Simulated scan of single mutants.
Amino acid sequence: MVTLSILPHETILEIFYHLPIRDIETLAKTFSHPITDICLPILKPLYKSRRDRKELVKAFGPFGERFPVPHGLESLDLDSPVRKTLNLSRRDVIKLPRRRHTLDLDFMRFKGNFDWLHPLPRSVVDDMASHYRGPAIVGSALDDLLASAERVGVTIPPIFIKFLQSEELQLRIPSHHAGVFHLTSGGLLRIPKARIGGRVGYAIGFLSYLIDGVMLYLEPGKDGIVSVLTDMEDECPYEVDGVNLPHEEEDCPYISQEDRDDAKAQNVPILAHGCTIELVGMDFETYLANLYYTEVLYWVCRLEADTVPGLEDYVKNMLVKKQEVPKRPKEIEELAKDARRQAIADQVE
C-alpha cells in the first residue's frame, strides 16, 4: 500500500478505474489517507445512490422482483450442455436472487458508452424478429419530453436519451414476453404526491409489456433522484403498441387538487393509473444490463442459444455460489463418478 501511495495521482486513478467499485470502497477504508482522498471522489456516485435508495424505499416501499432467474437455469444438472456453454464447473451452484432486492452489478464498471451491450446471437435475432415494432422514439415524443423536463427543472440522464435514440442498441435487448421500447408521447408524467410520500416526482415511460410498463423516475434538480419503476397493473399505465391509453383520474385515489393545479400550471399530465408502482432498480444502465443478461439467459437455457460476451461473468458473479469441497469419502466418490461421466460425454462429442 505504501508503494501504491507514492505513485503519481493520475496513475493511481487509472489503476482504480479498472477495479470493481466495492474494491475501491475497501481501499478507501484503509489507514492510508492519500489513498482514501483519491478514492472518495470516485465513490461519490455510490454513496449518493445509497442515500437515494433509502429515500425511495420510504416513498415507494421495498424494491420489487423484476429479474427472476430464467426458467431452466435453477435446475441445471451437472451434465447439462448449458453448463458447458456458461463454463460452469461442477461445484458451481445456481443461487436465486433475493426477493425485494435490486441487483447491483458491482463487478462491472459502466462508462456510458454501452460497450457491454453486444449484438445478439443469430438464433435469438431470428426469434425476436416478430416482436419488433419500430424505434422507441416516434414523432415529436423526444422534443415533448425535453420541453417538459425544462419546464419542471428535471435533468434527464444523457445515457437514457442516448439509448432511446439508437435503434441499433434497442434491438440488442431481447424479450421473450414481447417487451417493446417506446417513449411516452406528451413528455413527462407527474406522479401524485400522496403516492410518493409528499415528494415531487415525474416518470418517463420507456418500456411496455402486454400487461405492465417500465418507467424512469426523476426528481427535480441537477442531482435529483433517478430510479427505475414498474407498474404492475392489468393494463400498461401509459401505452400499448405505441398508443397512449386514456385513464380517468378517478382510477387513482392518490390524486389531490394540488396535484391537478400543479400539473395544469406545468402543462404535465398526471400518471393517473399508477397505484401499483414498484421500485425495480436505481441506475438506468444497471437496470438495462440486468435486463439484457437475464433475457439472453432465457434463450441460452431454453433453446441452447449461443452465449454473448460478458454473460459468463454475469452468471458467475450474480447467480453462482461455490460448493465446498467434499470431505467425506462417499461425497468424494460421487463427485469422481460425475467427473468420469462428464469426461466420457466430452469424448463422445
Rank of each mutant, 00 (worst) to 15 (best):
Q170F: 08
F31T: 15
P237R: 09
S75V: 15
L117V: 02
R83L: 01
R90W: 08
L169C: 08
G281M: 05
G134I: 01
D241G: 10
K330W: 12
L335Q: 11
D262S: 13
L88V: 04
I38S: 01
D104W: 02
P81Q: 11
R341Q: 09
I211E: 15
G61I: 08
A28V: 08
V226G: 01
I12C: 09
L105F: 01
C301S: 03
N290Q: 04
I6H: 12
L46Y: 02
R195G: 06
Q342P: 00
N113R: 13
I161P: 05
R83E: 09
L291F: 06
K316C: 06
D223W: 07
H176V: 03
L335E: 09
I161D: 03
N267M: 11
P119Q: 03
P192D: 01
L105Q: 00
S75Y: 10
I156C: 03
P8I: 01
I277V: 14
N113M: 08
I156P: 04
E333M: 11
K264Y: 13
S5C: 12
S166I: 04
T155A: 15
P135I: 00
D106Q: 11
M282E: 14
P8V: 02
H177A: 12
N87S: 14
G139R: 13
K222Y: 14
C252V: 04
A263K: 09
R151C: 05
C252W: 06
K337V: 13
R172E: 06
V124E: 02
K264T: 14
R340F: 11
K162G: 10
I255A: 04
R133A: 12
G205D: 06
E334C: 04
V243H: 15
G221I: 05
T3C: 12
V320E: 05
E219K: 01
Q170G: 03
A141G: 07
G274Y: 03
C236D: 13
P97G: 00
R133K: 10
P309G: 12
H33G: 09
V93D: 07
R190L: 06
E10S: 06
P70L: 04
R22M: 09
D313Y: 08
E167F: 05
V57K: 06
D262E: 15
K321E: 13
V315A: 08
F284N: 01
M215R: 15
G198N: 08
R195Q: 06
N244R: 15
T11N: 14
E55R: 15
K193H: 10
E65D: 10
E349C: 10
K337Y: 12
F160Q: 03
P269H: 07
E250W: 14
P329Y: 01
L46I: 05
V228I: 09
K44E: 15
D52P: 07
E150P: 02
Y254N: 02
P157H: 07
G281T: 07
R328T: 12
V125A: 08
V280R: 00
L40Y: 09
K316H: 09
E312N: 09
T26Y: 01
L271H: 07
I35S: 04
I21C: 00
Y238H: 11
Y287V: 00
I191G: 07
R122E: 14
D77W: 04
R109T: 06
